[in-house]
Simulated scan of single mutants.
Amino acid sequence: MAKKKFSKNWVNQHIQDPYVKLAQQKGYRARAAFKLLEILDSEKLLEPGDVVVDLGATPGSWSQVARERLKRSDGSINGQIIALDMLEMEPIAGVEFILGDFREDSVLRTLEDKLQGKSVDLVLSDMAPNLTGVASADSARIAHVCELAQDFAARHLKPDGALIMKAFHGSGFSQIVQNLKTQFVKVVERKPKASRDKSSETFLVARGLKA
């Protein structure tokens, strides 16, 4: 019964959420779009001509934001956006989608074929693991997902490129930040207004690969 009540409360909060309403008005697939918009504006990231890779992209709101930023007046894309996910994603005009797990060599090869030798300006990762509620297991899963995004960025970013990655405050968070600092010149934490107060999610922005 308690679980049913909890889910009903969540649905009510979700329906009343101003960012959910705003996302519907603006045609974004998820309220997460506003988190990325705030980070891009505060960090002055994503310019016409950029190459963007969106990891864990489904349902696609971050790719929608990237498309808006790179769209020419005729609707074509000034740059390149490649989205990956293990779940299907409804097509977005101008966004190339790869279905698969980027840890697999075959999926990485597909991505590299699409990049045609180009390095990436911006890696986006809104990925989150399925959480169990067991703190020690969850912190290990979160760290693993962050590590995957960091490794991918380190291999594919331009020297002055950037990574925007979701992490969660709690056990292991400081270690995730420390790991980023070993590879990037600048690492900052961002908690956008659209991120719910109750949520421990924090976005890490890492810039400038160390030689």
Rank of each mutant, 00 (worst) to 15 (best):
R67G: 00
Q64S: 06
L37R: 14
L37F: 04
K71P: 00
D121S: 15
S63W: 07
F97Q: 05
L209V: 11
W10K: 07
D41N: 15
R72C: 11
E112M: 12
Q64V: 08
K198T: 13
G172Y: 10
G208I: 11
Q24V: 03
V20Y: 15
V95A: 08
K118S: 12
L36R: 09
V134M: 03
L204I: 13
L124P: 03
C146E: 03
S174G: 00
T202V: 15
V205I: 15
A137T: 14
D85R: 12
L40Q: 04
E201P: 09
I82V: 15
A162N: 10
G172W: 10
K71Y: 00
M86G: 00
G94P: 01
Q16S: 14
S195K: 02
S42G: 01
G172E: 08
L131E: 02
S7D: 08
L163H: 13
A128Y: 08
V177T: 09
L157Q: 08
A66R: 01
L148C: 14
Q64K: 09
A167N: 04
R72N: 15
A57F: 02
K191H: 02
R196C: 11
A93D: 14
F203L: 13
I15G: 00
K118D: 05
P59T: 10
I164P: 06
F97T: 05
R69I: 02
E43A: 15
